[in-house]
């Protein structure tokens, strides 16, 4: 499937802002099953932009706007080729999987350790104990069991948490959004000894209506390292990812991959942020050259 994505973030400042320095993680991250055919970043007022890869291999754009401005608009447009995710075929059991633990725990230390939004609290450990793996259970089956269980136990309730909530909040209130479900599920996997990482991305709507999606289509899920490599799971939907899941960036948790993070100077205290997201399916034969030289 080919998707055209237009992700516009608009910051409006009460008083003029200046010296705005931002880190953007808005360029979709390629994998064997997802390819960025074109990417283009437009920033108004004009910004100085450089790009580099971060510690987790994500493409980061550093964008700075020096003169005073009352509005900052960041528009990221991508053309993505996405294949259906791989089948979960490997039936390796947990007991066997854990034999390899020493090497895995060294190589994937970051994705097996507690992180800012995923502290290994007693509450999380108790929750993990309810859904601990059985040694004769295939790791892949266990992974599916965990995400389905998380979806069953918690209510999807926008507003029940905020972007800076850690797993404690969702465990206490019993409700959260995709980010919380991802953090919580990652915590369970890490405690089980399965490396797990956070994915920020988009979920393309089922029917291409071209309707604006607001920030709704911004989504978060996770990937676990199974014997055959990384596999995506979406605990918000209690299932594997689909070809409609489009990856932006991966990290230990949300703190590593916010789409936009930055600072600016302003006499005013308030800013408002608006997000407009359009995702449409694109016929596969259409030329990809319409983004011109900005293809990366």
């Amino acid at each position: 499937m080919r998707y055209r994505i237009r992700h516009v973030t608009r910051f409006t400042y009460e008083m003029p802002a200046s010296q705005s320095h931002n880190e953007l993680r808005l360029q979709p991250r390629d994998s064997l099953r997802q390819r960025t055919l074109a990417f283009r970043l437009d920033i108004t007022p004009p910004a100085a932009v450089i790009s580099y890869r971060d510690a987790f291999g994500n493409m980061v754009h550093a964008a700075s706007v020096h003169p005073p401005h009352t509005e900052l608009m960041v528009c990221a447009e991508s053309l993505i080729q996405r294949e259906a995710p791989r089948e979960l075929l490997n039936k390796e059991r947990f007991a066997r999987f854990l034999c390899d633990d020493q090497r895995r725990s060294q190589e994937n230390y970051d994705f097996l350790s507690p992180s800012r939004y995923i502290p290994f609290t007693d509450q999380l450990k108790k929750f993990f104990w309810l859904i601990r793996p059985r040694m004769n259970e295939p790791v892949a089956d266990y992974s599916q069991r965990v995400v389905a269980w998380v979806r069953d136990q918690f209510a999807y309730e926008p507003g029940s948490t905020d972007v800076h909530s850690d797993v404690t909040q969702v465990l206490t209130t019993g409700a959260g959004v995709c980010q919380d479900f991802a953090h919580l599920t990652i915590g369970v996997f890490r405690l089980a000894g399965v490396p797990a990482r956070y994915v920020s991305g988009y979920l393309a709507p089922k029917i291409d209506s071209g309707r604006p999606l607001g920030s709704q289509a911004s989504h978060a899920w996770l990937e676990v390292l199974l014997p055959d490599g990384w596999f995506g799971f979406d605990p918000t939907h209690g299932a594997r990812v689909t070809e409609r899941h489009i990856r932006l960036a991966v990290g230990r948790d949300y703190a590593d991959v916010p789409p936009i993070r930055g600072v600016y100077q302003s006499a005013g205290k308030h800013q408002t942020m608006g997000v407009a997201l359009e995702i449409s399916e694109e016929p596969a034969d259409q030329s990809v050259q319409d983004y011109g030289a900005t293809q990366q």
Binding site: S105, Q106, S113
Partner: peptide, 24 residues
């Protein structure tokens, strides 16, 4: 040095002085 196992990777990654922001 981490790949060769001379220093455990976890010792580096969990150090308060390791700065992921300057990797590369």
């Amino acid at each position: 040095i981490l790949k060769d196992g001379l220093i455990p990777r976890d010792l580096i990654l969990e150090s308060a002085q390791y700065r992921r922001a300057v990797v590369g």
